[in-house]
């Protein structure tokens, strides 16, 4: 019998011509935070909707906390909690009433539902606003109320679709703390996020999804290691750009890329300082002076840009198919 918190196999869901999910398999153990990354339209929300019984896949199977969500949705719903991408709270009820209703729908008595509502309100620091109608809440407060709602039923597996989007940095840190607490209490969390730094900080495992396919998976460190060591970054005056790219490519080979937005040239540096020295020698020999030159460890952003192909590559033979 499987004890995986989430296990999905070959999940396919198309909307007309759009292949939102094109054969996704994913599995992870209880007691961790799994971070799902992917560009807009990658299929993150669709996957969460399938796993939380809101959407039937065209093909594939999905289990949450050992329960088959397709065969036994009601039982699966008892074990999962969901905070969707946009806050799903009732404008005309107070924060307290929203949570009380949800507690009641989970089968709690009136008293227990009230107690539970107060607990989660407190955890989300909404106690002061508990008796105000939600229509008076700010966007961030709604978001927090929505998170509170997803916790009312003490789910075994909690699905959070971009939980910190639209939340100020201070509250974001609070929510990170809260998620860590939940995991300490035995909850498993699957979250999506646009903030790679968030996945880096929080997630025990990271999956990258693009065009409906899971294209990479591992711990944040494993993914960074696949980048192959450090990165040398430099910028030059626009007039020197072409010469610089040419000189570096012929001296150092493939893998050099240019980010037009940030006007940064990146050179993979598996041996760290050696490549940095090679870069500076090459530039020196060509009498090119960079406006900026530094070496740094790869971040999840680098991984993300590389494997989702969103970074513009300067060389034709960019390596790194995995």
């Amino acid at each position: 019998m499987s004890t995986a918190a989430v296990r999905a196999e070959g999940v396919i869901r198309h909307f007309g011509d759009v292949k939102a999910l094109n054969g996704v398999s994913i599995e992870f153990e209880p007691g961790m935070i799994y971070g799902l990354l992917g560009p807009n339209g990658a299929g993150k929300t669709t996957l969460i909707r399938v796993l939380t019984t809101l959407l039937r896949p065209d093909a594939g199977t999905a289990h949450v906390a050992g329960v088959d969500v397709l065969a036994n949705p009601t039982e699966a719903r008892r074990r999962l909690g969901l905070a969707g991408q946009s806050a799903a709270v009732d404008e005309f009820l107070t924060g307290e009433e929203n949570l009380h209703m949800i507690g009641r729908l989970y089968g709690l008595s009136k008293r227990d539902a009230r107690k539970r509502a107060d607990e989660v309100l407190e955890r989300m620091t909404l106690t002061d606003a508990a008796n105000r109608q939600v229509k008076t809440y700010s966007g961030g407060m709604r978001r927090r109320l929505d998170l509170a709602a997803s916790m009312v039923g003490r789910p075994e597996v909690l699905f959070l679709d971009e939980p910190t989007t639209g939340i100020d940095p201070g509250s974001r840190i609070d929510i990170w703390g809260l998620m860590a607490d939940l995991v300490d209490d035995g909850t498993t969390i699957l979250m999506t996020t646009q903030y790679l730094e968030e996945a880096d900080q929080l997630a025990d495992r990271v999956g990258v999804i693009d065009d409906g396919i899971l294209i990479a998976e591992g711990t944040a460190d494993e993914l960074k290691d696949e980048m192959g060591g450090s990165i040398v970054e430099l910028s030059v005056r626009d007039a020197d750009l072409e010469n610089t790219l040419g000189a570096l490519t012929s001296a150092l080979g493939a893998g050099i890329s240019f980010d037009a937005g940030r006007k940064l040239i990146s050179v993979p540096a598996p041996n760290g300082p050696l490549e940095l020295m090679a870069v500076s020698r090459t530039l020196d020999a060509a009498s090119l002076i960079p406006t900026q030159l530094e070496i740094r460890k790869p971040t999840l952003d680098d991984v993300f840009l590389k494997i989702t192909g969103n970074g513009e590559s300067a060389s034709t033979a960019a390596g790194g198919e995995s």
Partner: peptide, 11 residues
Amino acid sequence: AGVIDRFRSLP
């Protein structure tokens, strides 16, 4: 408002 989704995720 997404309220129906919330209800549908409840047992």
